[in-house]
């Protein structure tokens, strides 16, 4: 029982970050039908910014807003330079464009910064824990879960209660009709990228706090987690993306602790096998979005 509770808390901490990443992926998929394989690059770029700032003596308190701002700016720049040129193109083109962006960003850091892993100091409290009964809870997980809940509440407010959120949801549901209502397609797409960058920035803060390092290929892992979580939840569904993030986080933690030692290091493989099974039996993901097939 205690072990399960412990897993639950650890899993929620991990899943929170995935949920933020997946939500950013889902927002862009909604408005542009683009699955953004370059989503992790937001963390690569902001990771280098954090490394630069932290190693030149800036405190984490200042690094946090820096990471978020850099992430949003990177998201907008990528949209402007690459994705704005392939709006409305086929899925194939969109996918490979984002894959190309992923590689170009990675290669730029590889060439012009360094191929090696760059370390930076982690905030001291990251590995501190406190106890509730027999449970050992990390301060870090606590903060992550709280911030994520606040962020999700704020995003919900943004989407439900503001005109921008309304236009974003309308555009995701039916882009042409939203334009007919006067919703400007540039604004809504850029807004989606900014929101996606914001979410990746918050996730990135935690990701980087825990990692304490960055490298050119640092974006692959968060990208994959975000994209997979969005897919598990059901592509196109924002709620599904958040749910998918938590499910993925929990599955990883539970499996890692429950699998026999001999294959515990293969958790990723087992998780993937489960995802493959999920798609055989529930091909639309957890929350299926109706895809009307126009005949």
């Amino acid at each position: 029982m205690t072990e399960l509770l412990q897993n639950l808390i650890d899993g929620l901490g991990r899943g929170s970050i995935y949920a933020l990443l997946a939500l950013g992926v889902a927002v862009i998929f909604g408005v542009m039908h683009l699955l953004n394989f370059a989503h992790g690059e937001l963390i690569t770029v902001s990771g280098y910014a954090a490394m630069w700032a932290l190693t030149s003596g800036v405190s984490w308190w200042l690094a946090v807003p820096l990471i978020i701002v850099v992430s949003i700016a990177t998201s907008l720049v990528i949209e402007r330079v690459a994705f704005s040129r392939v709006r409305g193109a086929s899925d194939f083109t969109l996918l490979l464009t984002s894959f190309g962006v992923h590689f170009v960003v990675q290669a730029i850091f590889l060439l012009y910064v360094s191929a090696s892993v760059k370390n930076f100091p982690r905030p001291g409290w990251v590995s501190n824990t406190y106890s509730i009964g027999s449970l050992k809870v990390e301060w870090f997980d606590t903060v992550v879960i709280l911030v994520t809940l606040i962020t999700l509440a704020a995003v919900t407010y943004l989407l439900q209660r503001t005109m921008f959120g309304l236009s974003l949801r309308a555009a995701a549901a039916d882009f042409d009709t939203a334009r007919l209502m006067g919703v400007n397609s540039n604004n809504v797409i850029r807004g989606a990228f900014a929101l996606s960058g914001l979410l990746a920035g918050i996730a990135g803060v935690f990701w980087l706090m825990r990692a304490g390092q960055t490298q050119p290929s640092a974006g692959i892992d968060p990208m994959l987690k975000g994209v997979l979580a969005a897919l598990i939840g059901g592509l196109g569904s924002l709620r599904g993306a958040v749910l998918g993030g938590f499910v993925l986080g929990l599955a990883e933690v539970v499996l890692r602790s429950q699998l026999p030692d001999s294959i515990a290091s293969l958790t990723e493989g087992v998780v993937f096998a489960l995802i493959a099974l999920l798609f055989i039996f529930r091909p639309g993901g957890l929350i299926t979005v109706a895809h009307a097939e126009r005949v």
Partner: peptide, 14 residues
């Protein structure tokens, strides 16, 4: 072409 996931009020707002 109403937005089926949005409420009546939200449809009008948009």
């Amino acid at each position: 072409r109403i937005f089926v996931d949005l409420t009546v009020e939200e449809n009008l707002k948009i």
